[in-house]
């Protein structure tokens, strides 16, 4: 590997664009996406259904050519040197990678051989990965007889078998139970420690992006709409929710005016004996707020501060929720009852 290649970014995509034409209709799946990923980074691509995440990965893994724009992956141009790119990356697609009439172990070994492992190394790695992904007992079963989650684990094992420099995972944890999701995260972390692997994954699980990735790239309508650490994204794009409880309705009604005056930029409302405040930096503002309320004769009896989640960030950025089924309807029935203007 040349000096240039080992210091240049692992991924450099410029104005990456991909259109699909079906039945005379053109879908702009990815529109001018820019993305730079340094060596060793762990990046999560987050976006609603149809945002263009898979299409982006498919371009970066040489599966489909971009309509326009360029991408350099592991030091090589995806259009000019696809084979050089392929031998340096691993890819766990959104579908199932194992052939249905194959045995699980055979697929693992074949995959290892395909990536240049010798037969013994491939066998050893197959045993090692099957054991650590809970597939040891299933290794001799036909893939078609495995459950959805078991197949997904096999996909992951296949993607890890050659310890690639750069690993793409398209919704790796879909269909996994919580224990296996945790197990997957451990594998991704271990892979980085052992091989220094750069990881790019897409996910719908916000907690996964939050706990695993140092960097979250939010994709919507085929472009990057935000790109930062989970904490910074939350700080900038979503506010803390503070819930203050009072002795009675009258106290809460007094307090709501007090809070609104002290924090003119916060969204404040009250409902029964509770006051709801949405504000940036809520965790720091609360102690002073409590002292002030106690001093003015409306002491709080309970307090709750909720940090924003990536879902809040998401809702804020795209107008949609990532949580299945909820859509944009985030309101609770009580919210509409008594909104008190300051």
């Amino acid at each position: 590997m040349s000096e240039l290649q080992s210091t240049s970014p692992m991924i450099e995509a410029r104005a990456l664009t991909r259109h699909f034409t079906s039945r005379k209709q053109t879908v702009e799946a990815v529109r001018g996406l820019d993305l730079t990923v340094e060596r060793g980074e762990l990046v999560a691509l987050l976006g609603p259904n149809g945002a263009g995440k898979s299409t982006t990965l498919r371009m970066l893994t040489t599966l489909i050519p971009p309509t326009s724009g360029t991408a350099t992956v592991a030091g090589y141009d995806v259009g000019r040197d696809p084979r050089e790119v392929r031998r340096r990356i691993g890819y766990i697609g959104q579908g199932n990678g194992a052939g249905h009439n194959q045995r699980a172990r055979d697929e693992l070994v074949s995959q290892g051989l395909a990536y240049g492992l010798d037969r013994n190394t491939a066998r050893d790695r197959a045993v090692e990965l099957a054991a650590s992904l809970g597939l040891a007992e299933l290794a001799d079963r036909k893939v078609s007889t495995l459950s959805g989650g078991q197949r997904r684990r096999l996909d992951i094992a296949m993607g890890l078998i050659h310890g690639p420099e750069l690993l793409f995972l398209d919704e790796p944890s879909t269909g996994l139970d919580p224990q296996n999701r945790a197990n997957l995260q451990e594998h991704v972390v271990a892979l980085r420690e052992r091989f220094g692997t750069t990881v790019v994954l897409t996910t719908h699980y916000l907690d996964e992006a939050d706990s695993l990735a140092e960097r979250v790239v939010v994709v919507d309508h085929g472009t990057v709409v935000a790109d930062d650490t989970p904490d910074r994204l939350k700080a900038v794009h979503a506010s803390d929710r503070v819930v203050l409880g009072f002795r009675d309705h009258a106290d809460a009604a007094c307090a709501v005016r007090r809070v609104a005056t002290a924090h003119p930029r916060a969204a404040v409302r009250h409902d029964g004996t509770h006051v709801y405040v949405e504000m940036g930096g809520g965790t720091f503002a609360v102690p002073a707020l409590l002292a002030d309320l106690a001093a003015t004769g409306t002491p709080t009896v309970s307090v709750e501060v909720a940090r924003p989640t990536l879902d809040d960030v998401f809702l804020n950025l795209t107008g949609r929720s990532l949580r299945e089924g909820t859509g944009t309807d985030q309101s609770t029935p009580s919210e509409t009852e008594e909104v008190v203007a300051a």
């Binding site: 080992s6 051989l113 990536y115």
Partner: peptide, 29 residues
Amino acid sequence: MSTLTLTRPERVGHPLRDTAIVLGRELKP
């Protein structure tokens, strides 16, 4: 080399070896 991988690049992409791997996989079932 900054990253440690299991892959032996010189073996990857040899046409005969590749064909043997694909044939081997097809014959396994």
